[in-house]
Design a protein around this nucleic acid. Structure first.
Length: 249
DNA sequence: AACCCAGTGATTGACGCCGC
DNA sequence: GCGGCGTCAATCACTGGGTT
């Protein structure tokens, strides 16, 4: 089986000089040139901001952009000196999961899907947006709509991928709202694990204990958890399958 | 009706300024 | 010296108004 999910133009490699001002990162390319790349990750990127680390960036020719470069991946070194590339672009994570759904890789868990809508408003005040709203095919015995929230997961401890890596009020709200749409609709949380060096997924209790409590509440209430794992390469992504939940690891 | 473009909200860490 | 508050940063998706 070909486990390639997405192919793209080969990324450009360099080393991280620093990340600053929330959206900006300075990167030294292999040819010595220093460029400023947009950092599309909203979190603190725990364990990933090592100065001098190898990084990969993409180029956009859009005239509307101030910065042509986007930071996509960073290389980290494990305890046994093994190297792993980690995807850090949270927008890319959404695209990745959308492709996984379109390729029908979640069929065993969700059944056949008729339509996929992105960024649909929902929730108490209609101020939240669900990443994906799926409508099942008529033939699907469970005809409930499916709310899917995607979480780009980059932090790991031991062999467990952890989300979140910081206190996240927004993430807490998402869990409450996912719980709120049940049982009329199905709720699904999809941690998009953008590194291959993990065996499990777990809530980042240490970073956000309230999130951990809400996570358990929602699971108990019937929220489906589908942690998807990927390996990142210079010009493509491969599918590494589902990872089981491990609590109190 | 279809398309285009300008404007805007959402995102959160860093930093500057103010007052004490 | 320090805490709190406000602002800024770049991108994308969406919105609404205008034009073809």
């Amino acid at each position: 089986m070909d486990d390639r999910i997405i192919n793209f133009e080969p990324l450009i490699e360099g080393v991280l000089i620093k990340r600053y001002k929330r959206f900006l990162s300075d990167i030294k390319l292999d040819n010595g040139e220093i460029v400023t790349a947009h950092c599309a990750n909203t979190g603190p990127m725990k364990g990933l901001l090592n100065e001098g680390a190898k990084v990969r960036i993409s180029y956009s020719s859009s005239p509307k952009r101030k910065l042509s470069w986007t930071w996509e991946q960073v290389e980290v070194t494990g305890i046994n000196n093994e190297k792993v590339w980690v995807g850090i672009n949270t927008l890319f994570a959404n695209k990745l999961i959308k492709t996984v759904i379109e390729k029908n890789l979640l069929k065993d868990k969700l059944g056949d899907i008729a339509t996929i809508q992105s960024e649909v408003v929902y929730g108490q005040d209609k101020k939240s947006r669900i990443d994906f709203l799926l409508t099942p095919k008529i033939s699907n015995p469970d005809n409930r709509k499916i709310f899917i929230e995607v979480k780009n997961t980059t932090w790991k401890k031991n062999k467990i991928a952890l989300f979140p890596d910081t206190e996240t009020k927004r993430g807490q709200k998402h869990l409450i709202e996912l719980k709120g749409v049940m049982p009329e609709s199905k709720s699904v949380l999809v941690p998009c694990i953008t590194r291959k060096d993990v065996d499990f997924f777990g809530p980042g209790d240490e970073a956000d204990p309230i999130y951990g409590d809400l996570f358990r509440d929602s699971i108990d209430a019937g929220m489906l958890l589908i942690p998807c794992c990927f390996e990142f390469h210079k010009d493509h992504i491969t599918w590494k399958g589902f990872k089981p939940l491990k609590l109190d690891g």
